[in-house]
Computed example of a mutant assay.
Amino acid sequence: MRVDLDQDKCCGAGQCVLTAPEVFDQRDDDGIAFVLTERPPAALHERVREAALLCPAGAIQLAPQ
């Protein structure tokens, strides 16, 4: 799996960080999320999928590796 996050769409809700903190983080100045690990290990795929579904802005896109 490959994780992409469109920072222009991100509203800074932080759901991705709460759901998969090993993969997502937020900038301190404005709360916009960013990806820590573009290709997370298989053990995290379920949580990354959940984070994408929970994102209120639809900013997270997942692609096969």
Rank of each mutant, 00 (worst) to 15 (best):
2 R>M: 11
3 V>E: 11
4 D>A: 09
5 L>K: 07
6 D>A: 00
6 D>H: 02
7 Q>F: 01
8 D>W: 01
8 D>R: 02
9 K>Q: 11
9 K>T: 03
10 C>R: 00
10 C>S: 05
11 C>T: 11
11 C>H: 03
11 C>R: 04
12 G>N: 07
12 G>Y: 08
12 G>F: 06
14 G>S: 10
14 G>A: 08
14 G>F: 09
15 Q>K: 13
15 Q>H: 14
15 Q>G: 09
16 C>Y: 03
17 V>H: 01
18 L>C: 02
18 L>R: 12
18 L>K: 12
19 T>Y: 03
19 T>A: 03
20 A>E: 08
21 P>S: 08
21 P>M: 11
22 E>W: 00
22 E>P: 03
23 V>N: 01
23 V>I: 15
23 V>Q: 02
23 V>H: 01
25 D>R: 00
27 R>H: 13
28 D>F: 12
28 D>Q: 14
28 D>R: 13
29 D>P: 00
31 G>F: 06
32 I>N: 01
32 I>S: 03
33 A>V: 02
33 A>P: 02
34 F>M: 04
34 F>E: 13
35 V>D: 10
36 L>Y: 06
36 L>C: 00
37 T>K: 10
37 T>L: 11
37 T>W: 06
38 E>K: 13
38 E>R: 14
38 E>Y: 08
39 R>G: 10
41 P>C: 09
42 A>L: 11
42 A>V: 14
43 A>G: 05
43 A>Y: 04
43 A>H: 12
43 A>V: 14
45 H>M: 09
46 E>H: 09
46 E>R: 00
47 R>C: 07
47 R>Y: 06
49 R>I: 04
49 R>M: 11
50 E>Y: 04
50 E>M: 10
50 E>T: 15
50 E>L: 14
51 A>H: 07
51 A>R: 04
55 C>D: 08
55 C>Q: 06
55 C>F: 04
55 C>Y: 04
56 P>L: 08
57 A>V: 05
58 G>D: 11
59 A>I: 07
60 I>S: 09
60 I>C: 09
60 I>E: 12
61 Q>V: 13
61 Q>D: 14
63 A>H: 15
